[in-house]
Design a binder for these strands. Structure first.
Length: 820
RNA sequence: GCCGGGGUGGUGGAACGGUAUACACGGCGAACUUAAAAUUCGCUACCCGUGAGGGUUUGUGGGUUCGAAUCCCACCCCCGGCACCA
């Protein structure tokens, strides 16, 4: 049978070429960065994956574009470091272990092994030679080292704090394990239990963390972090307390509205406030205790919801407002939180919406102290929260309330009734976890010396392999005699080792610093490399980390700076948060939900390049959204068409100068568009532009003989533009057209602005803002000529209906709007 | 609830305050084929109209502007985070 010319050509076979190039790249160590090399460095960081099992679409979605972006920087001539690691400690490993009887270490490291292979199959340019696994003693040893340093500097301290407790399982639960207030395993109602726990003093850095002047981060993230820190200025006032058998002689309360202090009708304490049991009178005790117990069952979100009515109960006790000498009843209410301000809130019904509703309900007085404009002295119909003029406020009457704020603070300071204070919403970071699979906290509790740090040369405190990590009353480490029983490093007395482990956010605080020298054993990082490579130039990761991880890591960096480990003030110069890819059900993709999409079958069918590009094509990276596999055939067609455009030469020898100019314009316009899109991480439109280029090449080929030089310019540049996004096919096409290995070491193409310009424009003609005509005009058309053309248009004349234009607006090169 | 983001054809989406719906999926029609797949070409927001053409449309309602998907106000819905999932 006769073969056609087409059939002789080799077809695009992703399975074959992807394997071939991945092996070649690995053998050549193409992606191992020489950290000592000269040239401009670029540290490109993508958030490290959790070792949950198989790499799924939820991993490919953030990693495909970040890999493309790192490759692009490399083509821009930078010395790019693009490392990878594994977030290996945490709850899921322990859950898997309990469920299946596998040791968390075995489960985790088997996953790491599998994920490594899957990452290579993506064709990602990760430098695996600098890999970090956070469960390695050589990594967590430095978590401990930092902890000791922080303990010595009083940045780590211990205090009582509540934890979710399942009375039936006798174990601490993560928030995730509490479903509607009950234990997810046994359904028992979860209670709060106070435990001695470790905290980091992130509040010491609160003001510095509000300063974003040294970073280029998206505004929404800066706003969210600013709100999370929640700095507010105001007065911390003391209200006099005179109750028999109560030692405290005052209640301290923080307010941002000192101008309303004469209008206080109640003092509201958090149910957990230490004074509550002391001041509650016997006749109110039962009610108060019931309320406290109920409050402790609710989540903070429920408690502080402004949607529902305020609730509270009277303790039977009173304090005195020193400003006006009035007796103020002391209540407790769940919306007051012990950890915010002083754990007490003033009730001012006239000037707070919900206090107003509360006072109405209980028939309490509503004294006005800040008069609304034009107030006639009659009772308010609703709370008035805006500024006004002070009334019923003694010496401050007549003062505008905004001025009165500082005057009242000054007066309080003079009288010794309080002082100006700055409060933060952010709380110190609770780092203790009563769990096995984490970094052991390097502290020894001595009956005589209290908590004593393990000395640096004893680090790491190894996590014992033979612990019983099934759920029991205590941290699994607490029942491991060999681990627990030690001698005090100070006095040698028999002591107990700390058995809590660290929050895994500790690992993500600084893993990117360790990447630079994962084997360095004289400190967390080789100082020379830290100086040369930090801070990170570009970080990409999920928007779900906008606050916690990204705020903790900024905090921890400042601690490292103060310890002399690093020098800059910020860890990450530029940040990009991509959206989250959701399962086909519109829910977050997670193994526990059972909605993860494995890419394997798609990759086997269409190739890694197609799958990477598809993920980049489905929409703006920052949006995320539900994953559907529907459109991947469009990417497959595009790659096939690109393949044949490059491998299958057209008939050469064009005499048509206009066609050649058109082809070159397509090339240079595409270079310009793709460059802009890649710079802005607009992958979907970058790929659209490349699709349009391939379509344009097909048209050019069909239109007749093509100019050889212009065609070669087009296909070579197109191959280069595809390289970051589709690294395998680009390498193959590059080598087939005689390009020098590797395409990923070539320079990113430049465009010639003159060649991108169109000769003609479409002049849009509007009458009263409605499009009535489109006229083709020369690109450089003058304003007068354009207006003349527009007014001469037949459809325009029809719509003018003989009326004389009042105004003619001209938008250069685009549009004429005729207004009548 | 609070903080942040979003809502555009049948679907994913495109659009410096200036041609709404690029690019792609799907659908319909055609070519090639014994046939299917693949490939290629054409059509495809909605309504009225045989047609030329006209009208409507970017979650809802209002406003600013010669001109609004884009800016402002109010509302509805969806997504992320809310401190022990990571």
């Amino acid at each position: 049978m006769e073969q056609t010319t087409e059939a002789k050509l080799e077809r695009y076979n992703p399975g074959e070429i992807e394997k071939k190039w991945q092996e070649r790249w690995a053998a050549d160590r193409l992606y191992e960065t020489d950290l000592e090399a000269d040239g401009e460095k670029f540290y490109f960081l993508t958030m490290l994956p959790y070792t949950s099992g198989d790499l799924h679409v939820g991993h490919w979605y953030p990693m495909s574009p970040s890999d493309a972006a790192a490759r692009y920087q490399r083509m821009r001539g930078k010395n790019v470091f693009y490392p990878i690691g594994f977030d290996a400690f945490g709850l899921p490993a322990e859950n898997a272990a309990i469920k299946r009887g596998i040791h968390p270490r075995k489960w985790t490291y088997e996953n790491v092994e599998r994920m490594r292979g899957q990452l290579r199959r993506m064709g990602a340019m990760f430098d695996f030679s600098k890999e970090v696994v956070t469960a390695d003693p050589e990594f967590y040893r430095w978590n401990q080292w930092f902890f000791v340093k922080m303990f010595e500097r009083d940045l780590a301290y211990r205090k009582m704090a509540p934890a979710n407790w399942c009375p039936s399982c006798q174990t601490v639960l993560a928030n995730e394990q509490v479903v509607n207030g009950a234990c997810e395993r046994c359904g028992t109602t979860v209670v709060q239990r106070d435990l001695d726990q470790w905290f980091f003093r992130i509040r010491n850095y609160a003001d510095e963390l509000l300063d974003f002047s040294q970073v280029d981060w998206p505004e929404p993230i800066r706003i969210m972090q600013t709100n999370w820190i929640g700095r507010s200025e105001g007065l911390e006032a003391s209200f006099a307390l005179d109750i028999e058998n109560v030692d405290a002689k005052e209640i301290r309360v923080f307010t941002t509205r000192p101008d309303t202090i004469f209008g206080v009708t109640s003092m509201v304490l958090a149910p957990e406030h230490p004074l509550v049991p002391q001041i509650t009178t016997p006749d109110h005790r039962a009610e108060v205790e019931a309320y406290v117990e109920n409050a402790r069952k609710q989540t903070e979100i429920e408690r502080t919801s402004t949607d529902r009515e305020k609730t509270g109960v009277f303790t039977g006790a009173y304090c005195t407002n020193r400003f006006n000498g009035e007796q103020v009843p002391i209540w407790i209410a769940d919306y007051a939180l012990v950890w915010y301000g002083t754990g007490a809130v003033m009730g001012v019904p006239a000037h707070d919406e919900r206090d107003y509703v509360f006072a109405k309900k209980w028939g309490m007085d509503i004294p006005v102290v800040v008069a609304p404009p034009g107030w006639d002295g009659s009772p308010l119909e609703e709370a008035y929260a805006a500024p006004g003029v002070m009334v019923n406020s003694g010496r401050f009457d007549g003062t505008p309330s905004e001025e009165a704020k500082s005057a009242i603070i000054a007066h309080a300071e003079e009288q010794g009734w309080g002082e100006r204070k700055v409060t933060y919403r952010i709380r110190d970071w609770l780092i203790s976890r009563q769990r096995y699979w984490g970094t052991p906290i390097p502290i020894i509790h001595c009956p005589k010396d209290g908590p004593v740090a393990v000395s640096e040369d004893e680090l790491p405190v190894l996590l014992p392999e033979d612990a019983e990590f099934a759920p029991t009353g205590e941290s699994p480490l607490a029942r491991h005699e060999g681990f627990v029983n030690v001698k005090c490093p100070k006095c040698g007395e028999p002591s107990r080792r700390e058995t809590d482990t660290m929050d895994t956010f500790m690992d993500s605080n600084w893993y990117f610093v360790r990447y630079l020298s994962p084997d360095y054993d004289k400190g967390p990082v080789d100082p020379k490399l830290a100086e040369r490579w930090l801070p990170v130039d570009q970080y990409t990761g999920g928007a779900e980390h906008a606050v916690m991880h990204l705020l903790y890591t900024r905090f921890f960096w400042k601690v490292m700076r103060d310890l002399g480990v690093v020098t800059a003030d910020e860890p990450i110069k530029r940040l990009f948060n991509q959206g989250q890819i959701l399962g086909p059900d519109g829910q977050r993709m997670s193994k526990s939900r059972g909605n993860v999409v494995a890419p394997d079958s798609q990759v086997a069918k269409y190739g890694a390049d197609a799958f990477r590009c598809y993920l980049m094509f489905i929409g703006p990276w920052e949006d995320g959204g539900p994953f559907r596999v529907d459109g991947i055939s469009g990417i497959e067609r595009w790659l096939n068409r690109a393949w044949s455009a490059v491998t299958n030469e057209p008939t050469f020898g064009s005499e048509d100068a206009a066609a050649t100019k058109e082809l070159r314009r397509l090339t240079h316009q595409t270079i310009k568009r793709v460059t802009g899109d890649v710079e802005g991480y607009r992958w979907n439109t970058a790929i659209s532009a490349l699709m349009e280029m391939v379509n344009g090449l097909s048209k050019a080929r069909e239109a007749g003989p093509v100019d050889r030089e212009a065609w070669t310019e087009a296909t070579r540049n197109m191959t280069l533009l595809m390289a970051p996004m589709a690294p395998h096919i680009a390498e193959e096409l590059w080598s087939r057209t005689g390009g020098e290995y590797s395409v990923h070491m070539q320079s990113w193409p430049a465009w010639d602005e003159d060649l991108t310009r169109e000769d003609e424009i479409t002049l849009v003609v509007q009458v009263n803002g409605k499009v009535r005509d489109r006229i083709t005009a020369p690109a450089g058309i003058a304003e007068d000529a354009a207006k003349e053309l527009a007014l001469a248009s037949e459809p325009v004349a029809k719509h003018l209906e003989g009326r004389t234009p009042r105004q003619v607006i001209y938008v250069p090169g685009k549009l004429v709007n005729i207004v009548v």
